[in-house]
Nucleic acid binder design. Sequence first.
DNA 1: GCCAAAATGATTGGCGTCAATCAATAAATG
DNA 2: CATTTATTGATTGACGCCAATCATTTTGGC
Lengths: 362, 362
Amino acid sequence: MNKHAHSESSQPLKIPTLSDVALAAGVSYATADRVSNERGNVADKSVRKVRDAMDALGYVRNAAAANLSRRRTYRLAFLLPKGPNAFFSRVRAHIDSLLNHLQADQINVTIIEIDAFEIEGLKRSLLSIADAAYDGIAVVGLHSPEIVEPLEKIRSQGTIVVGLVSDLPTLHREAYIGINNVAAGRTAGRLLGLAHADKQGRVQIIAGSLKARDHKDRLKGFSDVIREDYPKIELLDPIMARDNPDKVKAAVNEALIAKPKVTALYNVGAGNTGLVEALEQNTRKKRFFCVVHELVQHSHKALLNKHVDVVIDQRPDEEIDRALTTLKALIDDRTALPMQDLVPTIYVRDNLPSNNSHTTPD
Amino acid sequence: MNKHAHSESSQPLKIPTLSDVALAAGVSYATADRVSNERGNVADKSVRKVRDAMDALGYVRNAAAANLSRRRTYRLAFLLPKGPNAFFSRVRAHIDSLLNHLQADQINVTIIEIDAFEIEGLKRSLLSIADAAYDGIAVVGLHSPEIVEPLEKIRSQGTIVVGLVSDLPTLHREAYIGINNVAAGRTAGRLLGLAHADKQGRVQIIAGSLKARDHKDRLKGFSDVIREDYPKIELLDPIMARDNPDKVKAAVNEALIAKPKVTALYNVGAGNTGLVEALEQNTRKKRFFCVVHELVQHSHKALLNKHVDVVIDQRPDEEIDRALTTLKALIDDRTALPMQDLVPTIYVRDNLPSNNSHTTPD
DNA sequence: GCCAAAATGATTGGCGTCAATCAATAAATG
DNA sequence: CATTTATTGATTGACGCCAATCATTTTGGC
């Protein structure tokens, strides 16, 4: 009764090689190779024999041997905004930590710093790498028609382009690796709404700039959820703080003092050090329900200190891993492999990672 | 650290080989090889010369060539509970989807089904694979001293053993890949607490069995948080439903009818189809705040239908990926690589994966 | 300075695939 | 039928590393 069933897979100690396939198919190695690598000039009949033999033996090309023989190396570049931003420090740190491992697989990654969020800077950077003959690049992009031309110049040389964190013009990149920021905003709104439990509320929103697409998307998602499902919560006009800690601090203080009925804060963008500072100095007894984005050193600490209740994070480590996997796959066979959606992650005090790569100081 | 300038990467990019290292170090290939593979019988002076040359050239062993030459194949097994459990179906499906990719890297994975959560069955299964000479196994385990002996028998043959989802006796496995269930329970408690916003509340807890360590841990975490931070919420005695949908349904109905002041439900374990059924037939207008575990088809749907408010998930896909990576690393060099903690993931209606290819809306 | 031990050098045959060459055979054409 | 053309076969040298053998040199003990 308690038999354990082995699954379909047997114990093939002998892994079939292409020679084995050729033998089984009754053709020469050369023909099997022609089929395997789609070199053409093979009769349909032979193709079928070889393919059948492959299935029968369960042949899978040995990736190590193939890569070795092919002398394939992957030349990749990541174009990241420069500057002291804590989030992108996390990204860079993670790439650095992978460098050795990647090199063992002949994957060479270069980080190129670009002017953060300025179309002209991005455009210039793209043009300047157009001749560098990368096999693939991941770009923290902007959704602007102005960069279509440089993108196409790069792509015309066979370079694979993917968007990272923030998307590029959809038709001019192969894939986008990042979260859906509307969903991220909705998630923030949902938790904030839940935490009001049918009570009245007023939210002060702080954002960087509505020109940044991610901020705009988050704000939209957030507002939609509140309006749809939490009508008792009032949305105050967002304060624009340009992701600047000082401006954020001022905004929070304004909300604390000039708008005494505020029950919650939502910071759409960066600059959370300022937010935490303001809250630490807060003399009001009643506390805010507070939602911010991106788990970095100070937001992590603020969560533990109870100045912040929820952090919505986009898991840059995973984004990088996926960007690498996707680029490699696209370069190899020009087909992206299906992966589960990247999704905004919710952190509260109790599900924080303890061994962290995100505590890198900025 | 932050010295990532525009890299000088337009060169031919000659990746150094071990021959290059030998040449640069002024020793023979044989000596460089002795150092590289730690074969011993090398003078300290030579070791130093070779190591210096490696650093100077930035030598990293070509993994493809090494694996090919070594003729290394990885024979792995996953021991999973059998039965129709939705969660483990997800696990199996994910492994299946990886099979081809893995085989290209000479990784052969066998799924072995074991009697779910019965010590005797697990023990028998372990003993029966002891001679199969796997390089590594991942076991959905039990924290019981009875399986120490079979585990040690397996390990004595050089097989690497890791715990998966549910841990094994700590000293008798190499690593554990799974979430911290106390944290998972705390997370559930935190969200349920937040959603009460200082109001009174009563929670009906439903659990499978407190003999299962994961359930016990979750329950502890949950109760701790409520007691610590939400004193206005009363914890009713847990109902044991053995992860059985019918029993869960009965438990929910009991809470609905016999305990009219219940404001929230927390299902620690499985059997959520029963929970949803009961809620769908609920005639009371006031709804519960409802937290369950594991994102599977029906809990996903329940989240969208608003019968469930929060799902705590352990991301089995990622667990599998990590189990594979960890096993491979341990087999290769007997050292687990550092990875960010696996953490309980929170899903609300708005951050669900949609599994479509990731195209930004415009 | 002799001899054993230790260290180093030199070289080789794979591993499985790729990419090429050249010869040999089969099929198609007029 | 002769002559193209298409298809197959046979073989080979990388790729970079591993693992082994055997020869040679250096070192250290006495």
